[in-house]
Design a protein around this nucleic acid. Sequence first.
DNA 1: CTTGACCCTAAGGTCTACTTTAAGGTTTAC
DNA 2: GTAAACCTTAAAGTAGACCTTAGGGTCAAG
Lengths: 137, 137
Amino acid sequence: MDANIGIGALAQKAGVATETLRYYERLGLISPKQRTAANYRVYDPATAQKVDFIRQAQSLGFSLTEISTLLSLHSRPTADMAEVKQLAVTKITDIDQKIAHLQRMKSGLEVLAKICPGHGPTAECPILNALTGEDES
Amino acid sequence: MDANIGIGALAQKAGVATETLRYYERLGLISPKQRTAANYRVYDPATAQKVDFIRQAQSLGFSLTEISTLLSLHSRPTADMAEVKQLAVTKITDIDQKIAHLQRMKSGLEVLAKICPGHGPTAECPILNALTGEDES
DNA sequence: CTTGACCCTAAGGTCTACTTTAAGGTTTAC
DNA sequence: GTAAACCTTAAAGTAGACCTTAGGGTCAAG
């Protein structure tokens, strides 16, 4: 149990495509522990956890570049977690800004959608008219 | 007053780069009313309003492809505004989903940031540990 | 009449995270 | 022994909205 696995098995275990694993390897996120005589990649089964880590971090909004940093911090257990926390806090701020931006867009659209009767010639469409005129702050 | 203008003047008036105007033209969003003997683009000054329309719509979250639709509806005053409203409503839904997604990411990060002391070896970092293990729903 | 600002086209580059394609080697099952 | 399934590499394609580059024409000022 716990034997080495090939790229196909790792892909299945981690739920990603094999090309994705090669892509992660090109970015330096993962790497096979060795190669077979035929140059096939051979992975430690634990690599699946690393791929999970990557997908988890992605789902939290981290880019692969940022994840690369997280992984290197993770592999140096004596590094300080301040940097990790900083990344998380910065990411929260980024997300807040994106949310704020989306909410401004939404508000603008809601105002327009509300005053638009929804039928009649576009010549009288308040949405199109609003777009053709004043500026926003 | 109200003389024709060249691409440079239009770019300045509308606050975009000249290449952007050529790009919009390739997408069919705008077009010069004519060309000079030297093949220079000649615009109706009102085209600046059209560019404003495009930027406004962009700021509300519409893609250039969607804006193309909006512009064609705008240019057919007898078309029904139902389609315009539909685009707006759909866009609001899109935005809601994006906001929800971002808020899920934010919540996840906040939980982790809160339990992370912010200093000490990364071996004990709750953020990295959380990333290396359980799965999310 | 030349310099510099402005214009033209076509095509390639940017960014992110992959996916697809092309053109093969290798291993396994029958 | 051969065909399917799996592996290899490098390179190109995808989406979206541009920006940059290459290689010229053109126009107004001095």
